[in-house]
Design a protein around this nucleic acid. Structure first.
Lengths: 340, 340
DNA sequence: TTGTACGCGTTATCAT
DNA sequence: ATGATAACGCGTACAA
């Protein structure tokens, strides 16, 4: 409630002197007035009005976090990966003295509006954007933006943080092969615009090729990857729709659904079918059997994103425009060695 | 980038005319200038500066969402219940034309500062606060605040949304009794300051009493309720530390840990032990056996909270100061009928 | 229907 | 070391 003006009047000094003390510019103020003002600040519980500061400075200490909501009213925070990532980001943003403004978006039109509305200092996208979307967003915005889990080879303004999806697909498939599997399906939401899944798929293909296993296009199971979709695919597998002994699934939750769908229809994992997921959700070690999966370091992902963004905001040199984090295989209980 | 002034100059009218058009006050402007200005708004991609508006109006369209972080650096969004609730809140806040600013807090000192900093219009606490904390927060803040999952009988300024924890404890215990169980443990983080768990415990006691089952204080298992804590308690149970045939656990994740800990030590649920959880996380139906639990309607909780808050912000009459939502039992696979 | 003057709380610049 | 003034972009109140 108290303003600089109030404090200044009470102290018998000018507004600027108070402002300088508040902002720690002590070199311009005598130590006597400093202590006087500091006492008054405490007495009146003075708190700076950040709207006013933002207006004057043309910068707000706000960081916007955007998340796509493809279907209206869908709760994206039910996705454990998304919510964990968001939690890490919020924590870091706070620790660095910024404020997080969160926004789910249906179309990217809204993005630049929000950014301008609030003089946002920087933004982070936590769900995948297509190259085209990224370009449009970047064109209409002037603050630095970090994209998590997106791919963009052409736009030099795009700052990106992701994981080595290609390697993920590769090591998962390789592991299945090393366990004697040759009929291995890839299940995921495969499309031109889904770069993440495409990269995982390419890794899968590479592993097959390297081992001289001929590729069978029937083994590309193109599907949405919610839990329920997994149940459906699992049923199909149990019903011999595919001639496979193993599946590499592009998402954990989907993999769990698949296991359940197969089980219901008499196909038991890992005895009758081996499965590997992707993400390493906590959930993976809570279910039975525990899911073998490709893990990524979410905390590190968030740290990388915030560090890149803050450096860009402060116009410090960025070590690199994009960071690709490593992945590794978490071996648990859903892959069985084939003994024939 | 463009301001009212820019548009006004280009249109050859005053700033106020533009402002009126922007804010839809068409009654004060000729239709000719309206269309002219609307064209210019599009042409220059004019977006109002909300910092300036907030400064001038003393209100910001910002709603702060607070969440406690007891241990520094703990990621609270890994809790599926918290993240789902938050997702619903964010979605509603957006749909009602407000902006969500999210903040994890270590001490409640920070709360009123943030509220003042940004001229926040209203706030929501999504984790439990003690009565004392609530009172202090309310004393230092002037905007409406909704507390989710908190109890406060004395402060008339406190707006609250919660579930019927008492009933939850009651129906869970009652169900166990109706299945022939008489040695039933209550496991949770029981303390004076944890009103939620206290209420669930009181419901548990009521059910026992009603059925004439003598209360055994050894059956109150007071523990933190993370997954790992559940594993420890489950091991104890398997090792006959308690003389019980069933457990009502105050949190799902904890219940799952308990089941796992028991299993590892040779005590199989539901054959050797019956378990009921609380919250009905999605997770409950993904694990084996599927967890019987007390469910609450998270979506409705969020809607209630946002509705109460928005009414309070607009100084509309609030139907009631606090809303208690119903709970119900989700019968699944972790309770077995005792046949002796 | 349109325009003017002023205030919101802060910071930067330039004097003193 | 301290202060006066203008500026940030917008809305309210009142005047024309």
């Amino acid at each position: 409630m108290a303003t600089l003006k109030d404090i200044a009047k009470e102290a018998g000094v000018s507004i600027m002197t108070v402002s300088n003390v508040i902002n720690g510019k002590y070199s311009k103020v005598s130590s006597k007035t400093i202590t006087l003002i500091q006492e008054l600040v405490k007495k009146y519980n003075y708190v700076p009005n950040l709207s006013a500061r933002s207006l004057s400075m043309k910068s707000s200490k706000l960081i916007a976090v955007f998340i796509n909501t493809y279907e209206v009213k869908q709760n994206l925070f039910k996705d454990p990966y998304i919510s964990e990532l968001f939690g890490e980001l919020e924590s870091l943003i706070r620790q660095y003295g910024y404020y997080a403004i969160i926004r789910s978006i249906e179309t990217i039109e809204n993005v630049s509006t929000i950014l301008q509305n609030w003089n946002v200092d920087g933004a982070i996208f936590i769900s995948q954007q297509t190259e085209e979307e990224m370009n449009q967003i970047l064109k209409n915005s002037k603050c630095p933006i970090v994209f998590i889990d997106s791919y963009n080879k052409t736009n030099p303004k795009a700052i990106m943080v992701g994981v080595d999806d290609y390697k993920g697909g590769y090591i998962a498939t390789k592991y299945l092969i090393s366990n004697g599997h040759t009929n291995i399906a890839f299940a995921g939401c495969y499309s031109e615009t889904n770069a993440i899944v495409s990269h995982r798929y390419q890794g899968y293909r590479k592993a097959l090729k390297e081992s001289g296993i001929p590729y069978n296009e029937k083994n590309l199971i193109n599907t949405f990857t919610r839990y329920e979709d997994g149940v459906n695919i699992g049923r199909d597998i149990a019903n011999r729709k595919y001639n496979i002994s193993a599946v590499f699934a592009a998402a954990d939750l989907f993999a769990l659904g698949l296991i359940e769908g197969a089980r219901i229809n008499g196909c038991v994992v890992p005895n009758d079918l081996s499965v590997i997921g992707f993400d390493n959700l906590d959930l993976c070690s809570l279910v039975t059997p525990k899911l073998t999966t490709v893990s990524q370091n979410v905390k590190k992902k968030a740290e990388s994103a915030v560090n890149l963004l803050l450096n860009a905001i402060k116009e410090l040199p960025i070590p690199s425009q994009s960071i690709t984090l490593d992945v590794q295989l978490e071996v648990r209980q859903t892959v069985q060695k084939l003994s024939n």
